[in-house]
């Protein structure tokens, strides 16, 4: 059982040295987090609520990308359908709030399930449902590899999209508003800064989980499954359950981000499930630096800032996003984090 730990397989990607926070990489990482935390605090002191919400948006999208990064970056599973989990998380928050607002039950048969406006309940439900969905989708998709996997995850996400579009009970293609932001005990979630801090805590937690996971025996096996699954199998570990588990955890993180995103916007619609969003999430992971803990954060900051700044200048900002993305893919493969913080040891 302890073969991995005793180094019969030395999995690349695991840091041999303890991480140092004061070298170049450490400084960049601390800097990014500090920037994300201090900017909304400054905005709060200056009274600019808009910028607090912008920071919340960056944080939530970064969190969704952290989830996707676990699948793509660490697991080598190029999922083109993570919008499915993001959207499902969002719909859990929206539908639950809708029933709580109306005092109607979500379900009365075979068991009565009332709506709820408690974020804790919603988060738990979002995580569980996204995990179940990912278990089903992953179980089928992971039987395939390469291009098949990309297209199948895309197709399943589209299935969710069309389902949400044509199911009339919850707004269909018009979406569903969340009239009152869902609540947490003790704090007022309607305060933008409080909500930002909730999102920030979620982001930190998801990054900590990813980091912890990748340092564990499971993470070593996942890295090996990405690099050489035959070798992993030879070591007596079946790659399929490892990948499936990582895929499920990845979907849960993205789903939780989706639930927060719904509360941030006070609105859910099938757009959250659209394949454009899956693509954008992938773009964020790649822009930031694939398979790096802080890559999604760097990517999300860059993406949302571009969206805000360029989008303010021209309606056609995605044209420039496309051009930039093309250049990054063709010429600069290591993303923002590779450029800011130097390459990872195993690159």
């Amino acid at each position: 059982m302890d073969k991995l730990k005793t180094g019969i397989i030395a999995p690349p990607g695991l840091p041999a040295m303890p991480a140092r926070w004061f070298d170049r990489k450490g400084l960049v990482q601390i800097g990014l987090l500090a920037l994300l935390l201090l900017a909304p605090l400054a905005a709060y002191l200056l009274g600019h609520i808009y910028y607090i919400n912008l920071a919340s948006r960056i944080t939530v999208i970064a969190m969704a990308a952290v989830g996707l990064n676990l699948a793509i970056g660490y697991g080598g599973m190029v999922s083109f359908g993570h919008a499915a989990y993001f959207g499902l998380g969002g719909y859990v928050a929206g539908i639950s709030a809708y029933h709580a607002f109306d005092f109607t039950p979500f379900m009365s048969w075979p068991v009565a399930i009332p709506g709820s406006d408690s974020m804790l309940v919603i988060w738990l439900a979002a995580i569980l449902l996204c995990g179940l969905l990912a278990l089903a989708i992953g179980a089928i998709s992971l039987r395939t590899t390469g291009v098949y996997f990309i297209m199948i995850t895309l197709a399943f996400a589209q299935m969710m999209y069309y389902f949400a579009n044509s199911w009339p009970s919850y707004g269909g293609e018009d979406g569903l508003p969340i009239y009152l932001r869902n609540t947490l005990p003790l704090v007022d979630t309607n305060q933008p800064l409080v909500f930002f801090l909730i999102c920030f805590a979620g982001l930190l937690l998801s990054m900590a989980i990813t980091s912890r996971l990748m340092k564990s025996r499971f993470g070593a096996a996942l890295t090996m499954a990405r690099l050489n699954d035959t070798r992993l199998a030879t070591a007596g570990i079946s790659p399929y359950p490892i990948r499936l588990m990582a895929f499920v955890i990845s979907a849960m993180i993205t789903g939780l981000a989706g639930a927060l995103y719904a509360d941030l916007n006070g609105f859910i619609s099938p757009t959250m499930l659209s394949w454009h969003f899956s693509g954008e999430l992938m773009v964020i992971v790649i822009l930031g630096g694939v398979g790096r803990l802080y890559g999604p954060l760097a990517g999300a900051i860059l993406f949302v800032m571009m969206e805000t700044l360029l989008g303010g200048l021209t309606e056609y900002w995605k044209l420039f996003l496309g051009l930039m993305l093309l250049c990054v893919v063709l010429f600069a493969k290591h993303g923002v984090m590779g450029w800011l913080a130097g390459r990872e040891r195993n690159e």
Binding site: I150, M282, V283, Y316, K318, L319, G322, L326
Partner: peptide, 21 residues
């Protein structure tokens, strides 16, 4: 494949927004 997906996704953005422009 990941690079191919991203680069051709970028092409979609360029073509769609370019045409809209």
């Amino acid at each position: 494949h990941l690079d191919q997906v991203l680069a051709t996704f970028a092409l979609i953005l360029i073509f769609s927004e370019g045409t809209r422009w």
